[in-house]
């Protein structure tokens, strides 16, 4: 029977001495595309938009990561989505932009533990040391595009499109067990 992963049912994927991987609770997500007067956009959502790709900002429970020259992902609590959407809609006539809710699109894995970086290195071809604590990157992991948030040296969140979740959970589970066996 294949793994079924849903952000409606948070669960622990694997928990070893090397790393713990869990599925997070559903959270509101907005893909935001804009150019021009970014200060106005930041004002509307209540967080100043970072402009360096990979940089993050957070205020009042709203977290933003810059993923491209004109692209941000905005995380908000489910209850706040409407408020943010309304604020952006009000801005649209003066500053056209693209606000697309993608709450359902993604599942987030939390990946933490002493070997979290090594665990990521089994599927991530990029140099993880270049993703500093407090940054986020869109990157490749075992055949899928993911967004990786580094919250501490060995604590990460990984956003993956939901259809990839069960496949990637298998990768993470295999890796966490392999790394734990190495420690033993």
């Amino acid at each position: 029977m294949s793994k079924h992963i849903s952000s409606l049912a948070p669960s622990v994927v694997v928990d070893t001495a090397a790393a713990r991987v869990a599925v997070s609770q559903m959270i509101g997500r907005i893909s935001l595309r804009a150019r021009g007067d970014l200060a106005a956009v930041g004002q509307a959502i209540g967080v100043e938009l970072p402009t360096q790709i990979g940089a993050r900002a957070k205020a009042d429970g709203i977290e933003v990561a810059c993923l491209g020259p004109d692209e941000w992902t905005v995380l908000v609590s489910l209850g706040q989505i409407e408020k943010v959407e309304d604020a952006l809609a009000a801005l649209y006539p003066s500053l056209p932009h693209s606000m697309t809710e993608v709450t359902g699109r993604e599942v987030t894995f939390t990946i933490e533990g002493p070997q979290a970086v090594e665990l990521l290195s089994i599927g991530a071809p990029r140099d993880l040391s270049t993703i500093k604590v407090g940054q986020a990157r869109r990157m490749f992991f075992d055949g899928a595009t993911v967004v990786l948030w580094r919250d501490a040296e060995t604590s990460f969140r990984m956003d993956v499109w939901n259809s990839f979740a069960s496949f990637l959970a298998t990768t993470l589970e295999t890796g966490a067990k392999e790394l734990a066996a190495e420690l033993a």
Binding site: M1, S2, H4, S6, I122, D142, G143, A144, W161, N162, S163, F164, S166, F167, T170, T171, T174
Partner: peptide, 21 residues
């Protein structure tokens, strides 16, 4: 590497896939 058997290639599943199964 890891890509053999059921993990041979990325398999994408819908949220309804498990019901069909």
């Amino acid at each position: 590497g890891y890509h053999r058997g059921e993990h041979f290639e990325v398999v994408r599943k819908t949220q309804i896939d498990a019901w069909a199964e």
